Amino acid sequence: MSTLSKKQIYGILAQFESASEVYQACEKVRDRGFLKWDAYSPFPVHGLDKAMGLPQSKLSWIVGATSTICGIGGFLTWVWMNGVDYKYVIAGKPFLGFAGYFLPGFECAVLSAAIACLIGMLALNKLPQWYHSLFRSENFKRVTDDKFFIAIEASDPKFDPEKTMDFLKELGASNVEFVEQ
């Protein structure tokens, strides 16, 4: 740390060998009170979000609200166009035959749910992210293969370079390193 000041480092990156090790380490980092940190793994680890203390995702509310509003809007648009605005008798069918208007409303709901899911997921995950400081680490490249990582940011209020590094080593990390901005 002697050559890097706190302003020059992004944080500390700790490497773990297994999913169970990173899971237990995440619980301890959460319990220590760190706020700006994240865990990285080559595959989804069941329960890791709870171990990290993450809240429930807002994506289901975004998708649900969007599909409900657009589904009702599509239904009402179809009712207005065919039953009020432009009445045209076809085969003696009623102007406000709601059974025929349900399908277009449902299709609007499904389409808007898919679009809201994609846009909401990208926005909530802050994607696309073309650059991240962790890309500077040679060890971090193994996250897509077989290694697990925890990164604690230097901007965290509880971050102290020496204490945080010692803490991550105590958790059983196989490699701990500073990452530059």
Rank of each mutant, 00 (worst) to 15 (best):
W78K: 07
L124A: 05
W61Y: 12
K87I: 13
H46R: 12
A113T: 02
P94W: 03
A14S: 12
N82S: 11
Q56V: 10
L171C: 13
I9Y: 00
C70E: 08
F178M: 10
V179R: 01
F167V: 15
Q15T: 12
H132D: 08
L168D: 15
V45Y: 13
W78L: 06
E107R: 01
L13V: 09
P104G: 04
F34A: 04
H132C: 03
V110W: 00
P55T: 01
M52P: 02
L35R: 09
Y10R: 06
K141L: 12
A19R: 06
Y88V: 11
L118K: 14
A99T: 10
F106R: 02
K163A: 15
F16N: 13
S112P: 00
E153I: 06
G73R: 01
A151E: 10
V110C: 02
A151Y: 11
V22R: 09
F34E: 07
S155H: 12
Y40C: 07
F178A: 13
L118V: 14
A109I: 04
A25G: 11
L4Q: 00
K163F: 13
N139F: 14
H46D: 15
W80E: 09
W80L: 10
K50V: 06
T144P: 03
W61H: 15
S57R: 02
I90L: 09
F149A: 06
T144I: 09
I150Y: 04
A123Y: 11
R136K: 13
R136D: 07
A19W: 03
N139C: 05
G73E: 01
T77Y: 13
F149D: 06
I62A: 04
G172F: 06
P44C: 06
A109E: 01
K169H: 12
D85Y: 05
S18Y: 05
E138P: 09
R142S: 12
P55G: 02
E27C: 06
G83K: 03
E107G: 03
S5G: 00
Y40L: 09
P157L: 10
C70W: 09
Y23C: 04
